[in-house]
Design a protein around this nucleic acid. Structure first.
Lengths: 264, 264
DNA sequence: GCGGTTCCGTTTACAACGTAAAGCTCCGGG
DNA sequence: CCCGGAGCTTTACGTTGTAAACGGAACCGC
């Protein structure tokens, strides 16, 4: 079903190289006994990708690994920690992505562009996992967003500061960038999440939905084809470019612009 | 504790009029017997605001209402549905907000501005609830974002179309606006969510955290004061204004700008 | 008044969850 | 041969969401 050519999304799974596959871990119940934290986290990710987050329970994950559920507790302190680990693991895929660099060797715009697409690739590869990134309470109070690892935050700030941003504007940029990524990807991922409805209406009237009464919302109904059109890639690109443009202004003016600009 | 004057956030709880209080419902366990769906949803919101989302269980919510837990099932089909109802209720607070209008009587910019602040007020009033807005699977596949109610989507699209947007650009605007709101508010809310840590360090060194080793992240450490500075209100304003500016361009050009047409 | 229905809340019940604690089972070093 | 520990399983407990049966009050037409 997925239109394979035409204007294929460069961030779609397998669109780019080898990133987005977590761990070479054994397929499912094969590689017996070699249990360890990484294998567990890898399995958890596979499991969530396949069965959804709600389906993930300790016992089921155990079974998925050919083991008894309680066995996991030898390597993982508990479920919450496991989920934290999952998030961390998923974000760590960035390190394996050859298109994403830790340093801004080709300018900050290139750096941010690559980073954004790297994160998007991850989000699209693990749509069920990604919301966790947004929801899990952060280890450090700042570091909220998509790049939850301190190492990435460090890299981000360094990259910008090295290329001329002031500290203030680098931090401002970090936040603007983060919330852009978070918002856009969350929206995109959850839009994909709802497939074309697994069952239902094998025939009968396609409009005038069965569950809710749409007759009060004529515009929504009329624009439905537009609304359900998926332009995410282009929209992402546009919003990203706009953001970069905004940051460029910040850079040039050396400060984060304030309304009415009465500064401290 | 909350610095009351200075440059008070206009969207902070009680900053604006009467919105952001769900339902006049009885305080806690007072108004006995009059159980019904709205009262339950109201109580659930209060409960989540007070005890956090994780603490919400059917039995506890029952107890909070002076009732036996199973009693709730007469009015609510189940927990999932309850959470959906909570989200819906919270969004419905928009209707009670005198500053937010359903129609763009003072131009679309005014409309979007008011709407954005209305949603922000809600997010700040219910920081524990808001992430649900982002996470809950949507009833209709499109309609993803902060304004989950079809009525608001309808209103949004009408407002823009009435003031000159094409259908395509109205939809594009809807998405850009949504993801902006979602991202920014989610970030903001979860940043506030982590208060000054309920317990711990009643004394001792405030920096050089006890749990993780920050020594590898000198920039993060150095910028920590900046990073934890809370400029959310200003940042929100700036990003919102930028977005509106972007939409204005879209409006003027009558189309959603595609990659390729430049205008730096 | 009175039997019956209907409403609403309680009780009881159960499977599944996260997790503590104790029990196996094997394995390499004395 | 025995031992101790690593690694997994068993058993156990409290809590969760929810189905089903239950009780009692409030109302109905008579």
């Amino acid at each position: 079903m997925t239109a394979p050519d035409e204007d294929a999304d460069p961030d779609s799974p397998e669109g780019r190289g080898g990133a987005a596959s977590v761990i070479p871990a054994a397929p499912a119940g094969s590689g017996r006994s070699g249990l360890d934290r990484r294998r567990i986290l890898g399995a958890a990710i596979e499991f969530i990708d396949g069965q959804g987050l709600n389906a993930l329970t300790m016992r089921r994950l155990g079974a998925y690994l050919g083991v008894e559920g309680m066995a996991l507790y030898r390597y993982v302190p508990g479920r919450e920690n496991l989920l934290d680990g999952v998030v961390e693991s998923v974000i760590d895929e960035l390190y394996g992505d050859p298109d994403v660099h830790l340093a801004a060797s080709h300018g900050w715009q290139d750096y941010l562009q690559r980073l954004a697409h790297g994160v998007r690739r991850i989000a699209l590869a693990h749509p069920e996992v990604f919301p966790l990134v947004a929801t899990r309470p952060p280890a450090a109070p700042w570091v909220r967003p998509p790049l939850r690892s301190l190492r990435w935050v460090e890299s981000f700030l360094d990259a910008l500061i090295d290329t001329g941003f002031t500290e203030e504007s680098a931090v401002a940029a970090y936040r603007a960038y983060s919330s852009f990524l978070l918002g856009h990807l969350l929206l995109e991922v959850s839009q994909k999440g709802v497939k074309i409805s697994p069952e239902d209406h094998p025939e009968g009237v396609p409009e005038a939905a069965a569950d809710t009464d749409l007759s009060e919302y004529p515009t929504v109904v009329r624009l439905e084809p537009l609304l359900s059109l998926d332009e995410s890639a282009a929209e992402f690109e546009e919003a990203l470019e706009n953001l970069l443009g905004r940051l460029e202004v910040v850079l040039r003016e050396g400060r984060t612009p304030r309304r009415g600009d009465r500064r401290t």
